[in-house]
Design a protein around this nucleic acid. Structure first.
Lengths: 124, 124, 124, 124
DNA sequence: GTGGTCTAGACCACG
DNA sequence: GTGGTCTAGACCACT
Protein backbone atom coordinates (compact mmCIF):
# COMPACT_ATOMS: atom_id res chain seq x y z
CA UNK A 1 0.00 0.00 0.00
CA UNK A 2 2.24 2.79 -1.10
CA UNK A 3 -0.23 5.60 -1.49
CA UNK A 4 0.85 9.19 -1.76
CA UNK A 5 -1.76 11.73 -0.82
CA UNK A 6 -1.58 15.46 -1.32
CA UNK A 7 -3.38 17.86 0.96
CA UNK A 8 -3.05 20.69 -1.53
CA UNK A 9 -4.81 18.76 -4.29
CA UNK A 10 -8.40 19.76 -4.88
CA UNK A 11 -9.58 16.18 -5.18
CA UNK A 12 -10.61 15.09 -1.70
CA UNK A 13 -8.32 12.77 0.19
CA UNK A 14 -10.83 9.93 0.30
CA UNK A 15 -11.03 9.98 -3.49
CA UNK A 16 -7.27 10.08 -3.83
CA UNK A 17 -7.11 6.95 -1.71
CA UNK A 18 -9.88 5.24 -3.63
CA UNK A 19 -8.17 6.00 -6.92
CA UNK A 20 -4.82 4.82 -5.68
CA UNK A 21 -6.37 1.51 -4.72
CA UNK A 22 -8.19 1.26 -8.02
CA UNK A 23 -4.85 1.85 -9.72
CA UNK A 24 -3.32 -0.94 -7.63
CA UNK A 25 -6.06 -3.23 -8.85
CA UNK A 26 -5.60 -2.33 -12.48
CA UNK A 27 -1.83 -2.59 -12.36
CA UNK A 28 -1.97 -5.99 -10.72
CA UNK A 29 -0.65 -4.99 -7.30
CA UNK A 30 -3.95 -6.09 -5.81
CA UNK A 31 -5.68 -9.21 -7.09
CA UNK A 32 -9.11 -10.69 -6.58
CA UNK A 33 -9.47 -12.04 -3.08
CA UNK A 34 -6.59 -10.03 -1.66
CA UNK A 35 -7.25 -8.52 1.73
CA UNK A 36 -6.95 -4.75 1.95
CA UNK A 37 -5.32 -3.10 4.95
CA UNK A 38 -7.78 -2.32 7.71
CA UNK A 39 -9.23 1.16 7.65
CA UNK A 40 -7.51 1.89 10.93
CA UNK A 41 -4.05 0.74 9.96
CA UNK A 42 -4.30 2.54 6.63
CA UNK A 43 -5.44 5.67 8.40
CA UNK A 44 -2.45 5.54 10.70
CA UNK A 45 -0.08 4.87 7.81
CA UNK A 46 -1.38 7.83 5.82
CA UNK A 47 -1.83 10.08 8.85
CA UNK A 48 -5.48 10.73 8.09
CA UNK A 49 -8.66 10.14 10.01
CA UNK A 50 -10.27 6.72 10.14
CA UNK A 51 -13.36 8.29 8.64
CA UNK A 52 -11.42 9.27 5.56
CA UNK A 53 -10.15 5.78 4.83
CA UNK A 54 -13.57 4.37 5.61
CA UNK A 55 -15.14 6.70 3.08
CA UNK A 56 -12.62 5.64 0.47
CA UNK A 57 -13.55 2.01 1.06
CA UNK A 58 -17.24 2.88 0.92
CA UNK A 59 -16.76 4.45 -2.48
CA UNK A 60 -14.92 1.39 -3.76
CA UNK A 61 -17.56 -0.91 -2.31
CA UNK A 62 -20.33 1.16 -3.89
CA UNK A 63 -18.65 0.75 -7.26
CA UNK A 64 -18.20 -2.98 -6.82
CA UNK A 65 -14.43 -3.13 -6.49
CA UNK A 66 -14.27 -4.51 -2.97
CA UNK A 67 -16.43 -6.32 -0.44
CA UNK A 68 -16.38 -5.36 3.23
CA UNK A 69 -17.47 -7.61 6.09
CA UNK A 70 -17.83 -6.59 9.70
CA UNK A 71 -15.02 -7.86 11.80
CA UNK A 72 -13.24 -9.41 8.83
CA UNK A 73 -11.92 -6.53 6.83
CA UNK A 74 -12.24 -5.83 3.12
CA UNK A 75 -11.26 -7.98 0.17
CA UNK A 76 -10.90 -7.26 -3.53
CA UNK A 77 -13.94 -8.67 -5.27
CA UNK A 78 -14.04 -10.70 -8.45
CA UNK A 79 -14.52 -8.68 -11.65
CA UNK A 80 -12.70 -5.80 -9.99
CA UNK A 81 -9.90 -5.80 -12.54
CA UNK A 82 -12.20 -5.62 -15.54
CA UNK A 83 -14.36 -3.05 -13.77
CA UNK A 84 -11.33 -0.87 -13.17
CA UNK A 85 -10.19 -1.16 -16.77
CA UNK A 86 -13.63 -0.19 -18.06
CA UNK A 87 -13.65 2.75 -15.73
CA UNK A 88 -10.33 4.03 -16.97
CA UNK A 89 -11.34 3.52 -20.59
CA UNK A 90 -14.41 5.66 -20.12
CA UNK A 91 -12.27 8.33 -18.47
CA UNK A 92 -9.92 8.27 -21.42
CA UNK A 93 -12.83 8.64 -23.80
CA UNK A 94 -14.19 11.49 -21.74
CA UNK A 95 -10.94 13.41 -21.94
CA UNK A 96 -10.68 12.88 -25.68
CA UNK A 97 -14.26 14.01 -26.20
CA UNK A 98 -13.69 17.22 -24.28
CA UNK A 99 -10.45 17.80 -26.14
CA UNK A 100 -12.22 17.22 -29.45
CA UNK A 101 -14.92 19.71 -28.48
CA UNK A 102 -12.31 22.37 -27.91
CA UNK A 103 -10.49 21.47 -31.09
CA UNK A 104 -13.61 21.99 -33.18
CA UNK A 105 -14.30 25.23 -31.33
CA UNK A 106 -10.82 26.46 -32.31
CA UNK A 107 -11.18 25.27 -35.89
CA UNK A 108 -8.50 22.66 -35.53
CA UNK A 109 -8.90 19.94 -38.16
CA UNK A 110 -9.27 16.24 -37.39
CA UNK A 111 -5.82 15.58 -38.83
CA UNK A 112 -4.15 18.24 -36.73
CA UNK A 113 -6.02 16.97 -33.70
CA UNK A 114 -4.97 13.34 -34.14
CA UNK A 115 -1.46 14.50 -34.86
CA UNK A 116 -1.33 16.52 -31.66
CA UNK A 117 -2.65 13.55 -29.71
CA UNK A 118 0.10 11.38 -31.12
CA UNK A 119 2.78 13.94 -30.34
CA UNK A 120 1.65 14.43 -26.75
CA UNK A 121 1.52 10.67 -26.26
CA UNK A 122 5.24 10.42 -27.02
CA UNK A 123 6.33 13.36 -24.89
CA UNK A 124 6.56 11.69 -21.55
CA UNK B 1 -26.33 37.05 -23.99
CA UNK B 2 -27.89 33.70 -24.67
CA UNK B 3 -26.40 31.65 -21.86
CA UNK B 4 -27.83 28.33 -20.87
CA UNK B 5 -27.03 27.20 -17.36
CA UNK B 6 -27.61 23.71 -16.09
CA UNK B 7 -28.52 23.10 -12.49
CA UNK B 8 -27.75 19.41 -12.77
CA UNK B 9 -24.20 20.01 -13.94
CA UNK B 10 -21.56 19.74 -11.28
CA UNK B 11 -19.56 22.69 -12.52
CA UNK B 12 -20.61 25.68 -10.41
CA UNK B 13 -22.97 28.15 -11.99
CA UNK B 14 -20.57 31.07 -11.80
CA UNK B 15 -18.05 29.09 -13.83
CA UNK B 16 -20.68 28.08 -16.36
CA UNK B 17 -21.43 31.76 -16.86
CA UNK B 18 -17.76 32.73 -17.10
CA UNK B 19 -17.14 30.03 -19.68
CA UNK B 20 -20.15 30.99 -21.72
CA UNK B 21 -18.86 34.54 -21.90
CA UNK B 22 -15.36 33.40 -22.77
CA UNK B 23 -16.89 31.32 -25.53
CA UNK B 24 -18.72 34.39 -26.81
CA UNK B 25 -15.41 36.20 -26.96
CA UNK B 26 -13.61 33.44 -28.79
CA UNK B 27 -16.40 32.92 -31.29
CA UNK B 28 -16.66 36.61 -32.06
CA UNK B 29 -19.99 37.32 -30.45
CA UNK B 30 -18.26 39.72 -28.09
CA UNK B 31 -15.47 41.94 -29.34
CA UNK B 32 -12.90 44.11 -27.65
CA UNK B 33 -14.52 47.16 -26.13
CA UNK B 34 -18.02 45.70 -26.08
CA UNK B 35 -19.96 46.40 -22.91
CA UNK B 36 -21.21 43.43 -20.95
CA UNK B 37 -24.68 43.41 -19.39
CA UNK B 38 -24.73 44.61 -15.80
CA UNK B 39 -24.39 41.95 -13.14
CA UNK B 40 -27.92 42.75 -11.97
CA UNK B 41 -29.61 42.50 -15.34
CA UNK B 42 -27.72 39.34 -16.18
CA UNK B 43 -28.67 37.84 -12.81
CA UNK B 44 -32.32 38.60 -13.48
CA UNK B 45 -32.13 37.19 -17.00
CA UNK B 46 -30.59 33.93 -15.80
CA UNK B 47 -32.65 33.72 -12.61
CA UNK B 48 -29.60 33.41 -10.42
CA UNK B 49 -28.29 35.42 -7.51
CA UNK B 50 -26.42 38.67 -8.11
CA UNK B 51 -23.57 37.18 -6.10
CA UNK B 52 -23.24 34.48 -8.73
CA UNK B 53 -22.94 36.81 -11.73
CA UNK B 54 -20.60 39.02 -9.76
CA UNK B 55 -18.36 36.06 -9.08
CA UNK B 56 -18.37 35.13 -12.76
CA UNK B 57 -17.24 38.63 -13.72
CA UNK B 58 -14.56 38.56 -11.04
CA UNK B 59 -13.17 35.38 -12.50
CA UNK B 60 -13.08 36.88 -15.99
CA UNK B 61 -11.49 40.03 -14.68
CA UNK B 62 -8.89 38.05 -12.76
CA UNK B 63 -7.93 36.27 -15.97
CA UNK B 64 -7.72 39.50 -17.95
CA UNK B 65 -10.69 39.06 -20.25
CA UNK B 66 -12.72 42.01 -19.03
CA UNK B 67 -12.27 45.28 -17.17
CA UNK B 68 -14.79 46.45 -14.61
CA UNK B 69 -15.11 50.12 -13.63
CA UNK B 70 -17.06 51.34 -10.64
CA UNK B 71 -20.45 52.48 -11.78
CA UNK B 72 -19.71 52.09 -15.48
CA UNK B 73 -20.08 48.38 -15.99
CA UNK B 74 -17.69 45.90 -17.55
CA UNK B 75 -16.09 45.94 -20.99
CA UNK B 76 -14.24 43.32 -22.98
CA UNK B 77 -10.57 44.18 -22.75
CA UNK B 78 -8.06 44.30 -25.56
CA UNK B 79 -6.27 41.06 -26.41
CA UNK B 80 -9.12 39.14 -24.85
CA UNK B 81 -9.69 37.08 -27.97
CA UNK B 82 -6.13 35.85 -28.24
CA UNK B 83 -6.04 35.31 -24.48
CA UNK B 84 -9.13 33.13 -24.71
CA UNK B 85 -7.70 31.16 -27.59
CA UNK B 86 -4.49 30.50 -25.69
CA UNK B 87 -6.48 29.46 -22.67
CA UNK B 88 -8.54 26.98 -24.63
CA UNK B 89 -5.45 25.61 -26.33
CA UNK B 90 -3.85 24.86 -23.01
CA UNK B 91 -7.04 23.19 -21.85
CA UNK B 92 -7.03 21.05 -24.95
CA UNK B 93 -3.44 20.07 -24.33
CA UNK B 94 -4.25 19.27 -20.73
CA UNK B 95 -7.04 16.89 -21.70
CA UNK B 96 -4.87 15.17 -24.26
CA UNK B 97 -2.07 14.75 -21.75
CA UNK B 98 -4.36 13.15 -19.21
CA UNK B 99 -5.86 10.93 -21.88
CA UNK B 100 -2.37 9.91 -22.98
CA UNK B 101 -1.44 9.07 -19.40
CA UNK B 102 -4.37 6.71 -19.17
CA UNK B 103 -3.66 5.23 -22.57
CA UNK B 104 -0.12 4.32 -21.57
CA UNK B 105 -1.40 2.93 -18.28
CA UNK B 106 -3.75 0.64 -20.23
CA UNK B 107 -1.07 -0.38 -22.71
CA UNK B 108 -2.75 1.34 -25.60
CA UNK B 109 -0.27 2.11 -28.37
CA UNK B 110 0.37 5.56 -29.82
CA UNK B 111 -1.27 4.53 -33.08
CA UNK B 112 -4.38 3.23 -31.41
CA UNK B 113 -4.51 6.36 -29.30
CA UNK B 114 -4.27 8.77 -32.22
CA UNK B 115 -6.78 6.67 -34.10
CA UNK B 116 -9.26 6.86 -31.22
CA UNK B 117 -8.78 10.60 -30.97
CA UNK B 118 -9.58 10.94 -34.67
CA UNK B 119 -12.65 8.76 -34.39
CA UNK B 120 -14.05 10.65 -31.41
CA UNK B 121 -13.45 13.94 -33.18
CA UNK B 122 -15.75 12.89 -35.99
CA UNK B 123 -18.53 11.60 -33.76
CA UNK B 124 -20.33 14.77 -33.04
CA UNK C 1 -41.06 16.52 7.82
CA UNK C 2 -42.57 14.62 10.69
CA UNK C 3 -40.03 11.88 11.21
CA UNK C 4 -39.99 9.81 14.35
CA UNK C 5 -36.69 8.17 15.11
CA UNK C 6 -36.03 5.55 17.72
CA UNK C 7 -32.66 5.22 19.39
CA UNK C 8 -33.47 1.77 20.67
CA UNK C 9 -34.21 0.40 17.22
CA UNK C 10 -31.47 -1.70 15.70
CA UNK C 11 -31.77 -0.07 12.32
CA UNK C 12 -29.34 2.85 12.30
CA UNK C 13 -30.75 6.34 12.61
CA UNK C 14 -29.59 7.42 9.17
CA UNK C 15 -31.51 4.55 7.63
CA UNK C 16 -34.60 5.36 9.66
CA UNK C 17 -34.46 8.88 8.28
CA UNK C 18 -33.89 7.70 4.74
CA UNK C 19 -36.83 5.33 4.96
CA UNK C 20 -39.10 7.94 6.44
CA UNK C 21 -38.30 10.22 3.52
CA UNK C 22 -38.81 7.42 1.04
CA UNK C 23 -42.16 6.77 2.65
CA UNK C 24 -43.01 10.46 2.29
CA UNK C 25 -42.24 10.18 -1.39
CA UNK C 26 -44.34 7.09 -1.89
CA UNK C 27 -47.29 8.45 0.06
CA UNK C 28 -47.28 11.70 -1.86
CA UNK C 29 -46.09 13.97 0.94
CA UNK C 30 -43.03 14.77 -1.12
CA UNK C 31 -43.31 15.24 -4.85
CA UNK C 32 -40.78 15.52 -7.65
CA UNK C 33 -38.95 18.81 -7.48
CA UNK C 34 -39.80 19.47 -3.84
CA UNK C 35 -36.93 20.82 -1.80
CA UNK C 36 -35.93 18.77 1.22
CA UNK C 37 -35.05 20.45 4.49
CA UNK C 38 -31.36 21.28 4.79
CA UNK C 39 -29.26 18.66 6.51
CA UNK C 40 -28.53 21.12 9.28
CA UNK C 41 -32.11 22.14 9.99
CA UNK C 42 -33.27 18.53 9.87
CA UNK C 43 -30.45 17.54 12.22
CA UNK C 44 -31.53 20.20 14.68
CA UNK C 45 -35.18 19.21 14.39
CA UNK C 46 -34.42 15.55 15.05
CA UNK C 47 -31.71 16.24 17.63
CA UNK C 48 -29.13 14.21 15.79
CA UNK C 49 -25.76 15.02 14.34
CA UNK C 50 -25.43 16.75 10.98
CA UNK C 51 -23.42 13.77 9.83
CA UNK C 52 -26.37 11.49 10.43
CA UNK C 53 -28.79 13.48 8.28
CA UNK C 54 -26.10 13.91 5.66
CA UNK C 55 -25.62 10.15 5.50
CA UNK C 56 -29.35 9.64 5.11
CA UNK C 57 -29.35 12.03 2.16
CA UNK C 58 -26.31 10.30 0.70
CA UNK C 59 -28.13 6.99 0.79
CA UNK C 60 -31.17 8.47 -0.94
CA UNK C 61 -28.98 10.15 -3.53
CA UNK C 62 -27.10 6.92 -4.17
CA UNK C 63 -30.41 5.19 -4.86
CA UNK C 64 -31.59 7.94 -7.15
CA UNK C 65 -34.38 9.39 -5.04
CA UNK C 66 -32.94 12.86 -4.58
CA UNK C 67 -30.37 15.16 -6.13
CA UNK C 68 -28.09 17.29 -3.97
CA UNK C 69 -26.32 20.43 -5.12
CA UNK C 70 -23.71 22.37 -3.19
CA UNK C 71 -25.12 25.53 -1.74
CA UNK C 72 -28.61 24.80 -3.04
CA UNK C 73 -29.86 21.94 -0.93
CA UNK C 74 -31.49 18.70 -2.05
CA UNK C 75 -34.54 18.16 -4.23
CA UNK C 76 -36.69 15.13 -4.94
CA UNK C 77 -35.71 13.83 -8.34
CA UNK C 78 -37.97 12.71 -11.15
CA UNK C 79 -38.79 9.00 -11.18
CA UNK C 80 -38.44 8.97 -7.41
CA UNK C 81 -42.04 7.90 -6.87
CA UNK C 82 -41.86 4.93 -9.20
CA UNK C 83 -38.44 4.04 -7.81
CA UNK C 84 -39.84 4.02 -4.30
CA UNK C 85 -42.78 1.86 -5.32
CA UNK C 86 -40.52 -0.66 -7.01
CA UNK C 87 -38.35 -0.75 -3.95
CA UNK C 88 -41.26 -1.50 -1.65
CA UNK C 89 -42.61 -4.12 -4.03
CA UNK C 90 -39.33 -5.97 -3.97
CA UNK C 91 -39.30 -5.77 -0.18
CA UNK C 92 -42.79 -7.24 -0.09
CA UNK C 93 -41.72 -10.04 -2.37
CA UNK C 94 -38.67 -10.67 -0.22
CA UNK C 95 -40.77 -11.07 2.90
CA UNK C 96 -43.19 -13.40 1.17
CA UNK C 97 -40.35 -15.52 -0.18
CA UNK C 98 -38.81 -15.92 3.24
CA UNK C 99 -42.19 -16.71 4.71
CA UNK C 100 -42.80 -19.29 2.00
CA UNK C 101 -39.43 -20.89 2.72
CA UNK C 102 -40.39 -21.34 6.34
CA UNK C 103 -43.84 -22.61 5.42
CA UNK C 104 -42.40 -25.35 3.24
CA UNK C 105 -39.90 -26.21 5.97
CA UNK C 106 -42.80 -26.67 8.40
CA UNK C 107 -44.86 -28.69 5.92
CA UNK C 108 -47.50 -26.01 5.61
CA UNK C 109 -49.40 -26.39 2.35
CA UNK C 110 -49.77 -23.66 -0.24
CA UNK C 111 -53.46 -23.31 0.60
CA UNK C 112 -52.82 -22.93 4.30
CA UNK C 113 -50.05 -20.46 3.54
CA UNK C 114 -52.17 -18.26 1.31
CA UNK C 115 -54.99 -18.49 3.81
CA UNK C 116 -52.74 -17.34 6.64
CA UNK C 117 -51.48 -14.46 4.51
CA UNK C 118 -55.07 -13.38 3.88
CA UNK C 119 -55.97 -13.62 7.54
CA UNK C 120 -52.97 -11.59 8.70
CA UNK C 121 -53.68 -8.94 6.07
CA UNK C 122 -57.07 -8.29 7.65
CA UNK C 123 -55.87 -8.20 11.24
CA UNK C 124 -54.68 -4.69 11.43
CA UNK D 1 -23.14 -31.80 11.10
CA UNK D 2 -23.18 -30.73 7.51
CA UNK D 3 -23.36 -27.00 7.91
CA UNK D 4 -22.62 -24.66 5.05
CA UNK D 5 -21.60 -21.17 6.02
CA UNK D 6 -21.41 -18.28 3.61
CA UNK D 7 -18.89 -15.53 4.05
CA UNK D 8 -20.71 -13.27 1.63
CA UNK D 9 -23.95 -13.43 3.59
CA UNK D 10 -24.62 -10.50 5.85
CA UNK D 11 -26.02 -12.61 8.67
CA UNK D 12 -23.20 -13.20 11.11
CA UNK D 13 -21.51 -16.57 11.04
CA UNK D 14 -22.48 -17.49 14.57
CA UNK D 15 -26.13 -17.01 13.68
CA UNK D 16 -25.77 -19.04 10.52
CA UNK D 17 -24.44 -21.89 12.63
CA UNK D 18 -27.17 -21.56 15.23
CA UNK D 19 -29.84 -21.60 12.57
CA UNK D 20 -28.36 -24.58 10.83
CA UNK D 21 -28.47 -26.51 14.11
CA UNK D 22 -32.02 -25.40 14.80
CA UNK D 23 -32.94 -26.59 11.35
CA UNK D 24 -31.36 -29.95 12.13
CA UNK D 25 -33.52 -30.18 15.22
CA UNK D 26 -36.72 -29.26 13.43
CA UNK D 27 -36.07 -31.61 10.53
CA UNK D 28 -35.29 -34.51 12.82
CA UNK D 29 -31.55 -34.76 12.17
CA UNK D 30 -30.94 -33.99 15.82
CA UNK D 31 -33.20 -35.45 18.49
CA UNK D 32 -33.68 -34.75 22.17
CA UNK D 33 -30.74 -36.02 24.15
CA UNK D 34 -28.36 -36.14 21.18
CA UNK D 35 -24.88 -34.84 21.93
CA UNK D 36 -23.65 -31.95 19.80
CA UNK D 37 -20.08 -31.85 18.53
CA UNK D 38 -17.70 -29.96 20.81
CA UNK D 39 -17.23 -26.30 20.05
CA UNK D 40 -13.60 -26.99 19.20
CA UNK D 41 -14.22 -29.83 16.77
CA UNK D 42 -17.05 -27.94 15.12
CA UNK D 43 -14.84 -24.85 14.83
CA UNK D 44 -12.13 -26.90 13.14
CA UNK D 45 -14.64 -28.56 10.81
CA UNK D 46 -16.06 -25.22 9.70
CA UNK D 47 -12.74 -23.38 9.69
CA UNK D 48 -14.00 -20.67 11.98
CA UNK D 49 -12.87 -19.37 15.32
CA UNK D 50 -13.77 -21.22 18.51
CA UNK D 51 -15.30 -17.99 19.72
CA UNK D 52 -17.76 -18.18 16.86
CA UNK D 53 -19.01 -21.70 17.57
CA UNK D 54 -19.12 -20.91 21.27
CA UNK D 55 -21.34 -17.93 20.55
CA UNK D 56 -23.64 -20.05 18.40
CA UNK D 57 -24.07 -22.55 21.23
CA UNK D 58 -24.71 -19.73 23.68
CA UNK D 59 -27.49 -18.44 21.50
CA UNK D 60 -29.08 -21.87 21.29
CA UNK D 61 -28.72 -22.37 25.03
CA UNK D 62 -30.24 -18.97 25.72
CA UNK D 63 -33.26 -19.96 23.66
CA UNK D 64 -33.63 -23.31 25.41
CA UNK D 65 -32.70 -25.60 22.54
CA UNK D 66 -29.62 -27.13 24.11
CA UNK D 67 -28.03 -27.61 27.50
CA UNK D 68 -24.31 -27.22 28.02
CA UNK D 69 -22.50 -28.83 30.94
CA UNK D 70 -18.97 -27.99 31.96
CA UNK D 71 -16.64 -30.58 30.56
CA UNK D 72 -19.39 -32.80 29.20
CA UNK D 73 -20.39 -30.99 26.07
CA UNK D 74 -23.83 -29.92 24.87
CA UNK D 75 -26.97 -31.98 24.42
CA UNK D 76 -30.24 -31.27 22.69
CA UNK D 77 -32.76 -30.52 25.40
CA UNK D 78 -36.25 -31.90 25.74
CA UNK D 79 -39.02 -29.98 23.99
CA UNK D 80 -36.43 -28.51 21.62
CA UNK D 81 -38.29 -29.70 18.56
CA UNK D 82 -41.59 -28.11 19.51
CA UNK D 83 -39.71 -24.98 20.63
CA UNK D 84 -38.04 -24.74 17.27
CA UNK D 85 -41.31 -25.21 15.46
CA UNK D 86 -42.95 -22.45 17.48
CA UNK D 87 -40.01 -20.18 16.82
CA UNK D 88 -40.21 -20.70 13.10
CA UNK D 89 -43.97 -20.20 13.12
CA UNK D 90 -43.60 -16.85 14.78
CA UNK D 91 -40.93 -15.88 12.26
CA UNK D 92 -43.27 -16.85 9.46
CA UNK D 93 -46.02 -14.75 10.98
CA UNK D 94 -43.62 -11.85 11.36
CA UNK D 95 -42.68 -11.92 7.70
CA UNK D 96 -46.30 -12.11 6.62
CA UNK D 97 -47.23 -9.20 8.85
CA UNK D 98 -44.50 -7.00 7.43
CA UNK D 99 -45.44 -8.03 3.92
CA UNK D 100 -49.09 -7.22 4.65
CA UNK D 101 -48.08 -3.80 5.97
CA UNK D 102 -46.34 -3.01 2.72
CA UNK D 103 -49.21 -4.41 0.68
CA UNK D 104 -51.69 -2.09 2.37
CA UNK D 105 -49.27 0.81 1.94
CA UNK D 106 -49.19 0.12 -1.79
CA UNK D 107 -52.94 -0.32 -2.05
CA UNK D 108 -52.71 -3.97 -2.86
CA UNK D 109 -55.95 -5.77 -2.03
CA UNK D 110 -56.24 -8.75 0.29
CA UNK D 111 -57.06 -11.00 -2.67
CA UNK D 112 -54.08 -9.87 -4.69
CA UNK D 113 -51.91 -10.28 -1.62
CA UNK D 114 -52.99 -13.83 -0.89
CA UNK D 115 -52.69 -14.65 -4.57
CA UNK D 116 -49.12 -13.35 -4.66
CA UNK D 117 -48.27 -15.35 -1.55
CA UNK D 118 -49.59 -18.49 -3.21
CA UNK D 119 -47.67 -17.85 -6.41
CA UNK D 120 -44.38 -17.21 -4.61
CA UNK D 121 -44.86 -20.37 -2.54
CA UNK D 122 -44.92 -22.43 -5.72
CA UNK D 123 -41.92 -20.80 -7.34
CA UNK D 124 -39.18 -22.80 -5.78
C1' DG E 1 -27.84 30.46 4.05
C1' DT E 2 -26.47 25.85 1.63
C1' DG E 3 -23.61 21.22 1.17
C1' DG E 4 -18.52 18.99 1.04
C1' DT E 5 -14.69 17.56 3.54
C1' DC E 6 -12.03 16.45 7.51
C1' DT E 7 -10.81 15.90 12.44
C1' DA E 8 -10.66 13.33 17.12
C1' DG E 9 -12.89 10.45 19.93
C1' DA E 10 -16.60 7.29 21.44
C1' DC E 11 -19.48 2.82 21.85
C1' DC E 12 -21.09 -1.40 19.77
C1' DA E 13 -21.14 -5.97 17.12
C1' DC E 14 -18.35 -9.54 15.02
C1' DG E 15 -14.34 -12.93 15.03
C1' DG F 1 -8.24 -7.44 16.14
C1' DT F 2 -12.04 -5.95 12.60
C1' DG F 3 -15.87 -2.62 10.63
C1' DG F 4 -20.60 0.11 11.78
C1' DT F 5 -22.57 3.98 13.83
C1' DC F 6 -22.74 8.33 16.09
C1' DT F 7 -21.10 12.60 18.32
C1' DA F 8 -19.37 17.64 18.33
C1' DG F 9 -16.91 20.82 16.06
C1' DA F 10 -14.12 22.81 12.27
C1' DC F 11 -12.96 24.98 7.59
C1' DC F 12 -14.10 25.51 2.81
C1' DA F 13 -16.84 26.37 -1.63
C1' DC F 14 -21.19 27.79 -3.65
C1' DT F 15 -25.65 30.74 -3.78
Amino acid sequence: MDIIISNSSDTPIYLQIAEAIRYSIISGGLKEGDVLPSIRSLAKELSVSVITTKKAYEVLEGQGYIKTHQGRGSVVSARSASLAREHRLSELEQHLLEAADIARELNISAEEFAETARRLYDIE
